[in-house]
């Protein structure tokens, strides 16, 4: 009988659902963890990157303690709304579609979308030259949406769960090119894996505002905005920026 009791206890424990109050002094910072250099998980399991440093700087300004939580990209907005974390700093573009689900702070950087392809290949980014090419992007990103809206009839769009998987397929030759955020690709291009690839053409979209997402109507948004102004004004932002890019991305 002992066995059955143990099973029942374990089952009950399984069903017990974590709940926590949003205490003023502790916040959960949500991010993805697969988007270097903005957010990634290192060998020791730590979540690091530009987004996390900015997030922690904001937390310091707001005088709160922040715990970093990761979620996969596909479900990152539902996870925010499910209160799995309190704010989401994951290089997320501010779009009308997303604004229906969450609120955004002022942009904390501005990105562009640009194609990357092998150096050895003549790759033009006008519709005619792109015809029939296989182009990868991450699922549920602005690049993925842009491809579907603008080039769905011209190119074969492949959507990946993570940006890293798209790079793996570009390196293996499955993809002719990738469309993604310029800064993220800049980081990859200077890595060993990206040395045979380069940017192709001008950015196809250059006003990609990146914001921090909070739940709809959450007053945390204003506190984050104030803190953001402060870290820009006192040079904290610039210092973090310089660690990652030799140019300003604000």
């Amino acid at each position: 009988m002992q066995t059955y009791k143990k099973f029942l206890l374990a089952a009950a424990a399984t069903l017990a659902i974590g709940s926590q109050a949003v205490a003023a002094e502790k916040l959960k910072l949500g991010t993805e963890g697969a988007y270097p250099p903005f957010n990634l998980i290192d060998a020791s399991g730590q979540v690091v990157g530009f987004d996390i440093e900015i997030g922690q700087a904001l937390c310091a300004k707001m005088k709160v303690e922040c715990e970093v939580v990761t979620s996969d990209w596909d479900g990152i907005i539902p996870a925010l709304n499910a209160r799995k974390f309190d704010f989401l700093i994951a290089s997320m573009s501010i779009t009308e579609e997303r604004k229906r689900a969450v609120d955004f702070t002022e942009p904390y950087y501005t990105n562009k979308l640009q194609f990357v392809a092998p150096k050895s290949v003549d790759f033009k980014t006008d519709q005619n030259s792109l015809k029939g090419k296989v182009i990868g992007a991450q699922r549920a990103t602005i690049a993925g949406t842009w491809l579907e809206d603008n080039l769905a009839k011209v190119v074969d769009v492949k959507l990946y769960d993570t940006q890293e998987n798209a790079y793996l397929d570009l390196a293996s030759g499955r993809l002719d090119g990738i469309l993604a955020d310029t800064f993220v690709q800049w980081e990859w291009l200077k890595s060993d894996a990206g040395k045979d690839f380069e940017f192709k053409g001008d950015p196809v979209f250059d006003n990609d505002k990146i914001g921090i997402a909070v739940r709809k109507g959450d007053p945390l948004r204003e506190r984050l905005n104030t803190a953001l102004k402060e870290i820009v004004a006192d040079g904290t932002y610039e210092k973090i920026n310089a660690k990652y890019f030799p140019f300003s991305i604000y």
Binding site: D74, I77, E97, R100, A101, T145, L159
Partner: peptide, 11 residues
């Protein structure tokens, strides 16, 4: 379904 949900947020 996953691709549609990425656009509509209706899981």
């Amino acid at each position: 379904a996953r691709t549609i949900i990425a656009r509509t947020y209706l899981p």
